[in-house]
Amino acid sequence: MSSFNFVLFTIIGTGLVTWLSRILPFVILKKFKLSAGVVEFLSFVPIAIMSALWFENLFVQHIGHLPSIDWGNFLASAPSIISAVIWKNLLVIVIVGVISLGCLRLFFGM
């Protein structure tokens, strides 16, 4: 993990951009309006970034070569998806996923 100061700067920096995203529309909306194109582009951000973060964890990078598969994360994803479909509850999904990977590590050393 990074140094205390690096994390602190990260917290302040991310806090600032998040705060500005939250308040600026309240402040400037009377003067400007987001173009329809920008709004449309942004509408894809949540699914794109969430799937990117998930898929990146399924592979192990080898620069210059195709990535290999992280079998532990890959296999533990299946019960997580199934529990998402059944329960639609974030906490349940997380618990099922963690127990799945824990079992994979315990029994198969993944």
Partner: peptide
């Protein structure tokens, strides 16, 4: 790591993606 707790993050993204 031993308990698979590092997977909590990945599972959270799976859940958030599905709910989205």
């Amino acid at each position: 790591e031993k308990f698979g707790l590092d997977f909590a993050l990945v599972a959270m993204f799976i859940g958030l993606l599905y709910l989205q």
